[in-house]
Amino acid sequence: MRNRFVQMVIILLLLMVGGQGCTRQAVITPDRKPPTQTSPEAIPAVPSKGIGMKKRIPISVKTGDRLGWVENALITYPPNRFLTGLGMASDRNTAEQRSLTELEKPLAFSISGRTKMQIEAMGTFPASLDRKTHKLAAKCGNHALQEAISHGRVADVFIEETPAATFYALAVLDRHACVNQLRPLIAEMDHRLKEWVSRFEKADVPMHPADGYALMDAFLYREALDAALAAATPGGKSIPIPVQPKTIGRLLREK
């Protein structure tokens, strides 16, 4: 009797274990694969070239002869293909930031000069409109600069260890990539300007102030983009504007 009881207990335990095993097997279906672990080595450490300034490419600091580093940089990033900016500081971060600031300078100078010239070409405005125009020009210029510099990056870093540690950073901007970034934006602004000017010229009622602001914004932004393109293009070639500044000024004064 005792042996029969032990046998029943063993059979019951085996059934319980078997039931748990079937439950676990039913969770994993044949069509579903368990997740795989991605090793750190499988993740690319260096992004592709031509990325924007907001992303960073890991760069190892070089040492040795500074003049040799400069000569090699000129060969790697020739002036006819790249705009460059050089930054120098006692720490790496400051050197890199200064190099990016230097990279922006020729573009910012070209943009500022162009927008000032076109504001003058539009003619005299009332004081309130004149203030708005200059404020808008600054905003459009900064926006255009960010578009132009979007492919800029720190490309090389060098440290001169004696007599005191000094970091040198080289920032570069591919001229061709910059031009390709700006051309479609300029074409879009040209299309808008031609449409708006044609419509406002034919309108029997004065232009709404909001329309005047949009027209001024498109004109100044277009010219800021073209100024940046001229700075990035060898020889300073720009794209002719389809609308004359005097026409823009007249429409704004008539609104």
Rank of each mutant, 00 (worst) to 15 (best):
M216C: 08
V197F: 05
L220K: 05
M216W: 06
D217F: 12
Q181K: 13
V154K: 00
F200E: 06
A203H: 08
F158A: 00
T166S: 03
V179D: 07
D211P: 00
L185W: 08
M207R: 05
V179L: 06
P209Y: 08
A148H: 04
A148D: 03
R199F: 10
T166L: 08
A165E: 12
Y213H: 14
A169W: 02
A165M: 11
I186R: 07
T162F: 05
A218T: 15
A171Y: 01
F219Q: 07
G152P: 00
I149A: 05
V157F: 02
P209T: 08
L215G: 05
P184M: 09
G141I: 09
A148W: 05
R192E: 11
R199W: 10
L182C: 07
M207W: 04
S150K: 09
H151M: 06
F200L: 14
D211L: 05
I186E: 04
R222L: 09
A144V: 09
P163A: 04
A203Q: 12
E201V: 14
M189V: 13
T162S: 11
L173G: 04
A144K: 01
A218D: 10
V205M: 09
R222E: 12
A144M: 05
A155Q: 03
K202E: 10
W196P: 02
D217P: 01
Y213R: 14
T166M: 06
V154I: 11
V154C: 00
A218E: 09
G152M: 04
H143K: 15
E201G: 05
I149K: 05
L225W: 10
M216F: 04
V157H: 00
E188C: 07
H143Q: 14
A187D: 15
V154H: 00
M216V: 07
V172C: 00
A210R: 13
